[in-house]
Each structure stands twice: as C-alpha cells, then as structure tokens.
Design a protein around this nucleic acid. Sequence first.
DNA 1: CAGAATAACTAACAGTGGAAGTTTTATGGA
DNA 2: TCCATAAAACTTCCACTGTTAGTTATTCTG
Lengths: 213, 213
Amino acid sequence: MARPPRRLLSHGQIVATAIRLIDSDGLAEFSTRKLAAALGVRGPSLYNYFATKEQILDAVANEIIAKVDISMLGIEPWADALRSWARSYRASMAEHPNLVPLLAVGPARRPSALAMADAVFGALVDAGWPRNRATHIGALMRYFVTGSALASFAGSFPADPEVYADRYPHLDQAHLLTAHWREVDEGAFEMGLSALLEGLQHEYERIRACRKS
Amino acid sequence: MARPPRRLLSHGQIVATAIRLIDSDGLAEFSTRKLAAALGVRGPSLYNYFATKEQILDAVANEIIAKVDISMLGIEPWADALRSWARSYRASMAEHPNLVPLLAVGPARRPSALAMADAVFGALVDAGWPRNRATHIGALMRYFVTGSALASFAGSFPADPEVYADRYPHLDQAHLLTAHWREVDEGAFEMGLSALLEGLQHEYERIRACRKS
DNA sequence: CAGAATAACTAACAGTGGAAGTTTTATGGA
DNA sequence: TCCATAAAACTTCCACTGTTAGTTATTCTG
C-alpha cells in the first residue's frame, strides 16, 4: 500500500491501543509490530508518528498520569488534599498495573507529571511548608504511592504452604495472603497513608510553633 | 570446544558477573550473550547452570536482598529496629539502582526475601502488634523503601530551566534539583521514615490503650 | 574398561527495534 | 491547471534477543 487517501492513524489512537495491549498482555509482550497489527498497519508505519518505541511509552505514561485528580490541591487543607491526591494517584496506577514500572521512573519531561509535581509543591508551600520541606514531601509521597502500586505485596507470596514449613516460622499463614491480596494491599496503603500524614502533621505543628516563638 | 577438563563457570560467578554488568550498563542492555562473553564463554553455555534468563535475574535479586541487615529485628525496640532495617534495605538497593525494578516485584520464592519478611513480621508480632496489623506494616514499609530506591525523585527533573518557564509556576527552582539529587532523595527518605514511624508509634499506643481497658 | 553423564560448542529459530529506500497520494504555488 | 514536494503507507534488511537442538570431547561411575 502506498500513501493512503487519509491518515490511517493518530497519536491518540496509537496511545489508546498501546494501553489496551499492555493492560491485556503485559509490558514484556508489547512490541511495535503487535501494536501496528492491532491498528491494522505494518510495523514501521508507527515511526511516522513517533520516533522511537520509548516515545510511545512516554506518551502512554503521560496519558495515565493526566487522569490523576489534582483539583483538591491548594483548595482543601494540605493534609486532606494530600490524602485524596494520593488515593487518586494510586487508583490511576492500579487500573494499569502492567505499566506502573513506566510511571515509576519519574517526571522526566512528561507534561502531566510535571503539572502534578507543580500542584503538589504549590499546595504545600502555600500552606506554609518551607520550600525544602515541601520538596521532600513531594518526593516521599511519590515513593510511597508508586511503591504501593508497583507490585502487590500480598500477592507476591507463594500460595503453596510447603514453601514456609520450618524455614520461615512466622510466615505459617502467609500462603493465605494471595487469596486476599486486594484487601491486604489496600489496607496497608491506607494504614501507611494515615501514619505518614499523622507524622507530617506533627512535624508541621512543630515548625509552626518554632515560627511563632 | 568440547567438554573442558573442569567446569569453567559456577552459579556464584555467573551471578556476580551479572550484577557487575547490570550495574555498569543497565538492565535493558543486559543479555545472556553479553553475560556469557564477560565470562569467556558462548551464550548457550549458561543454560547448563540456569534454565532461563529469568532464573539468573532471580538469583541476582536474591543475592542483593541477602545483604540487607535484619539482625536488629526482634532485638531492638520495634520502631528503632524498623528504622535501622529500612535504612539497610534502602542502602542495599541504592548500591544497585539498575536492578531495583527486579527487587520491587516482591518475595516470590526468593529465600532471602522470605527470610526478611519472616524477620519483620516476627519482630512486630513479638512486640505486640496484631497479626493483620503486622502484615500491613511489612507491606507499607516495603512500599516506601522500594519506592524510594526505584528512581531518584530529584534526579528525574530536567535540568533545563526552559522546561518550567510559565507552565509550572511553582517549579521555577526545580532545575536546580538534579545537582543535589542525592541529598534531596536521602532527606526525603529520612523525613518520610520518621513521619511513618511516628504515625505508627501513635497507632501502637492507641491499640495498647484499648487492650488495657 | 565400557558407557553414561557432563559441559562446552555450533547452528538455527522466531521475534525484536529500527533504518533505508520505494511507491503512491494529497497539497501548495506558479 | 500542472508540477514539485512532502507525507504516509509499504517492503526489505540489519543486528540483536532468548532459547532449542544437535554435536563433540571429556570425566565420572559401575
């Protein structure tokens, strides 16, 4: 086929199909040829739209992060806002577990990730956090949220009781974890989020007390 | 070359060389042929020692986690022990940033990771935490530590000030982050760790208060 | 001392990301 | 209206990947 009457593809279409393929088959199975086939086209045609496979994946990551709700930042009190944002952030990644490894490598030059970092940092500074502390909080929240989305904790334990016998005396019930991994992961996330925010709240009050004196 | 007088390789040697290669060239560049070449051997010979590339990487992950210090667990007070363990855990991964993605996917069947989970869980239960709470704490600590090791927060911001102009008003200083990424990441980790442990300490006291009444 | 197991090898497979060059179409300027 | 150019698909090709199959020579075992 030579040049068709009209463009057969679009950036948005390619990204959407890539997300669908990665969701269903995993990141390791994802290739440019399979993506092209799913779009009804041959492999190299994709290079008319993206220069490299990496750029396609970058656009995918950008798309996912763009769906994180950041509207509460700067509006609700900082700790409440941080809690809601963290939940939305985690939920967005949990919808696409296969591409969390992509999302975990940082803002890079992705607009949506930079916009999110900007909103978080701005909300914290406006709330009275010193700038260096606000930077730390942005970082540590990302650590926690991406860590919690990256891989299931509960689901990664072997379901076979034999594994634990004798060798790991405290893990005698661990083989039951896989059955409830969703609740365990969610519970751990919520417990960690509450602990983190409680600790930060105390630090905030200590800093305010110092300022006033 | 036919069968040599003596085995040319060993599991330990293969794993050590794999770690060296991944540290220097990255996970994406790592291939069985390159590993074999570094060992003075042709590609398929590795399959006399490991059934798949994945098993080699699994052995690599096991080796790294085996170096995490867990000796304080069950000896020091639980919160102190958790702090020291988390630092050692993070330090072990930070020495090999290129293979953190491997380590992040959970205990699987790796002996060293299961031993670590066993020690953490045991220490918490012995300290009086309810078992389901101890499970959550083990999970959320792993979330935070792997998240903090997975990718530099500070180092992932573009160093080019142009990127931030106008679009991201609060990030006007973000281009300076890359220069100090080590301190920023370390500071964020320590701040998060302290906040997390402070929050958990409060929760612990609340639970103890309930028990006594 | 015969034969089995071992540990290296070469050759080959299907699949990968990507580059080069080809062909046809749409479009903008004279 | 005609033509040059750029666009967007194509085919072909390359080096590389993980892995399997089959070969060969050596060592170990009965």
